[in-house]
Nucleic acid binder design. Sequence first.
DNA 1: TAAACATTTGGAAACGTTTCCACTGGGAGG
DNA 2: CCTCCCAGTGGAAACGTTTCCAAATGTTTA
Lengths: 365, 365
Amino acid sequence: MRQPATIKDVALRAGCGVATVSRVLNNTGSASAEMRQRVQAAADTLGFEFSEVGRSLQSSTTRTIGCVVPSLANPVYADAVQGAQESFHAAGYQTLLVCTNYDPEIETQAIRTLTAKQVDGFVLTVSDALSSEGLKSIKSRGIPHCLLFSMAPDDELSWSVDDRSAASRVSDAFAEGGHSDVGFLALKFKSSDRARQRHQGFVQGCSRNGMKKPALLEIDEDSQELTNLLREFLMENPTLTGIFASNDFLALATIRSARSLGLTVPGDLSIVGFDGIEVGTMVEPSLATIVTDPKMMGSGAASTVLSVINGTPAPILPDPELTFSFRTGGSLASPVAERADGEKAATLSPSNNPTKKNHKSNGRD
Amino acid sequence: MRQPATIKDVALRAGCGVATVSRVLNNTGSASAEMRQRVQAAADTLGFEFSEVGRSLQSSTTRTIGCVVPSLANPVYADAVQGAQESFHAAGYQTLLVCTNYDPEIETQAIRTLTAKQVDGFVLTVSDALSSEGLKSIKSRGIPHCLLFSMAPDDELSWSVDDRSAASRVSDAFAEGGHSDVGFLALKFKSSDRARQRHQGFVQGCSRNGMKKPALLEIDEDSQELTNLLREFLMENPTLTGIFASNDFLALATIRSARSLGLTVPGDLSIVGFDGIEVGTMVEPSLATIVTDPKMMGSGAASTVLSVINGTPAPILPDPELTFSFRTGGSLASPVAERADGEKAATLSPSNNPTKKNHKSNGRD
DNA sequence: TAAACATTTGGAAACGTTTCCACTGGGAGG
DNA sequence: CCTCCCAGTGGAAACGTTTCCAAATGTTTA
């Protein structure tokens, strides 16, 4: 059983032509009962399975979909991939996965390779939908595809959270809580247009709510130094009462850093996250955040691709406004009036609280 | 550019035979400078790319690896897959991903499909390495493979955490903390031999440390009822001072449930988890746990498969004892002497603390 | 100068399928 | 009895590569 049996072997053993074997085993075309019987027997004893490679060559279809995401370390993508994979699997498609690590280079190269492998479609989160080389080539070749969590140009299908509206909603929450001076914390923008969208939406929302324009703290790819940076940020913006972090991990890390600076959450500082990962409900205080449904997004994108492939009507994309909801949590409360003794500022003096080495945060956008 | 160009088109345009095109574009065999030039030009203007399908058929190699895991919702697997995918990618292999949802049925079927697709190798986490149909068929066909997080029979390569030793190490930690009566909490065993291994190791360790045999709380696949179950469990085992949860999510959920029962952690109950997910360090109190390195496991398994494929010496599997370490955390402390007024038992009376509806926990093993 | 050899090139087979087509027989309709 | 049709069957082409082999050309060696 070294070399797998081919259709020829079966034909030989059943004493018939390959065409007959193909017809019998695929239940296509006609065959006598006796012939069916013989072919089945031969196939069984040889342990024959069709080679998908041979099939693909002949049918120029691979029943395989390319799935390109930045990383699985972020549960948002992990869940989305899982959702997409399940939908594809249910439709008889396999999923070829590539993680780009937020590297446009890898993204382009991966798409090229997957194209050469003749995937029947793509689900992808690109770093920049407008400039992506890979996306261009997919389009020019007319390969069915759907974006996921990527801002779509008008001519593109996409399942994504309405980051701007969601971020705007966060500003409402701060406003309702009585905050008027809050900040925005994100990892380097260039790596993801998601963070950019959230920032823009947040700035607009704050303006609409008559709040101060939010100060921006942009941190490094894998900054070990969140606590230090946060201290500086708070010293530069001493009147800040809340921070919107561009994802939940960052939010949790911020809470930890704030605490190690001697601040209480939400007493001294309110924190709001983004994504709605489950652990957010398990911590004390629970994390106020935007909750999304990445798995649904993934399977939605998958369905869309499948419908393009099959030429069936595409599932209606979800109303952008319904792609998220706000979850209240203990990490957001009304700001306490600043004490006259300037206790908060004192807490932040550099001599205080020698910085502990922090674990690197793994959330990225 | 509807139909992608084939090698024939290039040959036609360059005015030569297909063999020449193949030689030039693959840089194999000889060709005159002028011919090289012409072929390149033709290929460029046609936007030609080799079809991997044609290649695979001819070379009976696909440069594709099947990767089978239970779920990506569990960050342990997500990280492992990421690690494996990266290693494969670096070696020029693509990764075909399937999530089985812990369903042996799907597992078997997925392996069959991937085999038909002629993957060059497998990395897989099976539900039961001894009985897995899929694994048997992989072995009988002689396809290179490596297990991941699955207990390996002697003849199998596997990268996995030494669950027994790790669980035993947890019992040491409890013992050092002065606990002698602790429990074990896991999701249904049948879904995963990981949980079983941990249980066995924990029982042995407790015995070795002269502790009571740990009571077992086995909960449902997606129990919404953790708080209720925990209450009952604690009432049945009133002298319990600590719980070892078979994964970190479960541990965090347990902390939440304990709190909603009016218990303090670690004051009334110490909790230890398993996996070492990062959020464990962000919560208050931080989670005492076994920390593992899933990404390394994934890339290790990938390297092993690659070496089997290439016939190069396999990387040495890590010393089982080094596959994990214990991380101390605030959730584990010495038990306080039980108060005379039986305050804890009173807290647990059914009338108290109407059960809040819990989110379902998504960790599985 | 003839023979041996190296380089460049193209034809064709092979890889494993599906599918078109043509070839059998046999039964029904005239 | 002759046609016609139909079910059952196998041969062969096609899908896109790589690679073996032979042909053709040019170049050295004796």
